[in-house]
Design a protein around this nucleic acid. Structure first.
Lengths: 152, 152
DNA sequence: TTAATACTATACAAAAAAGTAAAGATATTT
DNA sequence: AAATATCTTTACTTTTTTGTATAGTATTAA
């Protein structure tokens, strides 16, 4: 039950871009310096985020990366989905089949049902907390859950 | 953001022991057969659970594993803590330091604060859902959160 | 048009997690 | 006491994840 490296570092990069504002893009070099990451690894991260449509790249001089949307409209859920599988995703049961081709509990599984509920619970939070909330330091989940409706 | 193999399989073994009742212990061989896992791997899992004090072992004939406490008193949280680190644990920041010895955001980190809140949120659920709830198919988290007080 | 700057893609190396193998120690039953 | 069934320990192999290296492509400003 762990946060992966891509998720952790990817979120940090997104936050950096959110803080910067959408004016001037940030280069890979700048991002890598500010986050203490290597340049190739930073490039890899940004590439993943770009392919998910969360950031856009401008080449050449004065180029760099910036967000495709204002951080107020970017849910943490989208960011994590871009950087890895969800907590309990569609591949879970096919992945943990033990020694068999298909899980022993395939027909009826209490653990699966529990994870499904759990995933939905977590998703309802991450879908409503926006990158802008993070930038401002707002993560009172209970209040956010109350104030905002389920995301579309 | 993923569930580890140890957590998934370990939880299944615990559920199996909970269903069995605390009378006759289950052997590694029985557990491995019922869960579709190899015998050595099952042994490894049970050893971890034993060292955490969640199960006890009896050697020799008629031996095997059983729960140390009734499943009504065993929170999912304890089980996951035994099988791996918590979602956002004390080692997180020391682990994701990029190329430096200490994380660039060590002084003031919005991501860290967010994870802390998030971890507490998840913990408040997992601390109140018991293994017995799972066995019965009860995982209406909202209701459980409402009905039960914060665990000690 | 040229050189500098920046992103893109592919292949590879290192570290961590997952899973296996085999020999050893302990308890119970006969 | 001996045989058997069980847990226990250590070391090893495989797979996945992380992170690196390098060569290539595109854009812009002078």
């Amino acid at each position: 039950m762990k946060i992966t490296a891509l998720e952790e570092y990817g979120l940090r990069c997104m936050l950096l871009l959110a803080d910067k504002g959408s004016g001037i893009p940030l280069t890979i070099t700048e991002i890598s310096t500010k986050e203490g990451l290597s340049i190739p690894y930073t490039g890899k991260l940004l590439m993943i985020l770009k392919q998910a449509g969360l950031v856009k790249a401008v080449r050449g001089r004065k180029g760099g990366y910036s967000l495709t949307r204002p951080p107020e409209e970017m849910a943490l859920r989208e960011i994590f989905d871009a950087l890895g599988e969800p907590f309990f995703g569609p591949h879970h049961c096919g992945r943990y089949t033990g020694d068999n081709d298909v899980c022993v509990h395939n027909e009826d599984c209490k653990v699966r049902d529990m994870w499904t509920t759990f995933e939905r619970f977590i998703g309802s939070i991450l879908g409503r907390v926006m990158l802008a909330d993070l930038a401002v330091g707002e993560y009172d989940f209970a209040r956010i859950l109350e104030a905002r409706s389920e995301p579309g």
